Simulated assay, not measured.
Amino acid sequence: MKSYSALILCLVFGFSLGCAPKFKNGQFPEEPVNLREINSPYDDINSDIPFITHQVPLVFSTNRSNAQTRDFNLTVAFIDFNWDKSEGLLTFNSSNTLFDPKFDSFRDMVRRTESSSNEKGPYSFIESSSGQILLYSREENGVYSIHVEPEKVDFKGRIAPKFRIMGNSGSEMYPSFYGKEFLKGAETNSKGRPELLLFTSDQEGHFDIYEADIPSSQSVLQFLLTMETKTLRKLSLNTTANEHMPFVYGDILVFSSDRPGGYGGYDLYYSQKTGSGWSEPVNFGPKINSEFDEYRPVVSDAIDFSNRLMIFSSNRPGGMGGFDLYFVGIPKF
């Protein structure tokens, strides 16, 4: 009875009676953890985080569905991250939020991207003039182009499901956006306005990261739809190796690279926006990288967590098979 009364007092009077939780802020682990709840024996790669509270609606690419062709399609799964403030323990599990009617339109949007070709590199955000947008890359005749869902109509009344930025000779993949006040997926809405488009292309024989200014007079979709030649800059952090799969969150750019000096295969790196461009990339180190391949990092803040969440894919041993999705905590640079 005494403990029950104490619990009631804590619920009523809270912190004033010394009932504050022992571990107030959550902490994502410093070493990668396999997302076994959603991985498969096949390849699960290229994720995107539309927004995050403690529930993560994770859009990713997988070849589990078609047993014969093994082409990659986008799918969506929900993961619950739960922080026990009394014990300081982090647990995660697959969530039933996916079946909540309020997510029907988002789930249907992801399903409409499915085709007999490969779909990779999803990126979703909310634009005030266009609503929720999902960009991704689809392979056609060995070349990837950036597509949009829902399909949009250009200024001449034509349906424009895909965009070519540099031409037709090389792949264009992994669109991401940066802006001084832009924060992708803050709660359920993006904040601020995208000012730069970042993407990768192998038009010169290997993948480089490019950026292009988005005019203040245009929305993202207007910028992509216009037939005007876009002024592109190759980021100074590029090397003669592959710089690939970029993702921007706030002022941090994370990407994969097989440049020399890593731990093997593709490693994960980060760079920060400065007044003169992007800083010299820093390897995330041996706790996160391995001698195998680490692909497509994505980053988000999480409510009541002191560090940031990063999700990526890797074909390191110990997984479910092929490429698996992993999560890890990184500092708030």
Rank of each mutant, 00 (worst) to 15 (best):
G185T: 03
I303M: 08
A241N: 06
L221D: 03
H147R: 11
D213R: 15
L74T: 11
T75L: 02
E228H: 13
I209R: 13
P281K: 09
S176D: 02
F15I: 07
T226C: 04
S176K: 06
N66A: 08
F13L: 15
S40W: 11
G319A: 09
S171K: 03
N283H: 06
S129I: 07
S257P: 01
F103P: 01
I252K: 04
F13Q: 07
D304H: 05
T53G: 14
R138H: 02
P331F: 12
S117Q: 12
I146E: 02
G275I: 09
T62D: 09
S216H: 05
V282M: 07
D100Y: 04
F255W: 02
H206L: 03
D44N: 12
S94D: 04
K287E: 14
N289C: 00
G321T: 03
F51N: 11
E31L: 01
V33L: 10
T200Q: 10
I8M: 15
N307T: 12
F81N: 12
S129L: 08
M1A: 08
S117K: 13
S128R: 11
S171R: 08
A241Q: 07
K156V: 15
S201V: 00
R296G: 10
F199Y: 08
K156R: 15
M310S: 07
F305G: 03
A302M: 14
S116W: 12
G262E: 11
K102Q: 09
Y266W: 11
H147K: 13
N141Y: 07
I49H: 06
I49A: 09
S256H: 00
D324E: 08
N66K: 09
G170C: 02
P122D: 00
F327Y: 09
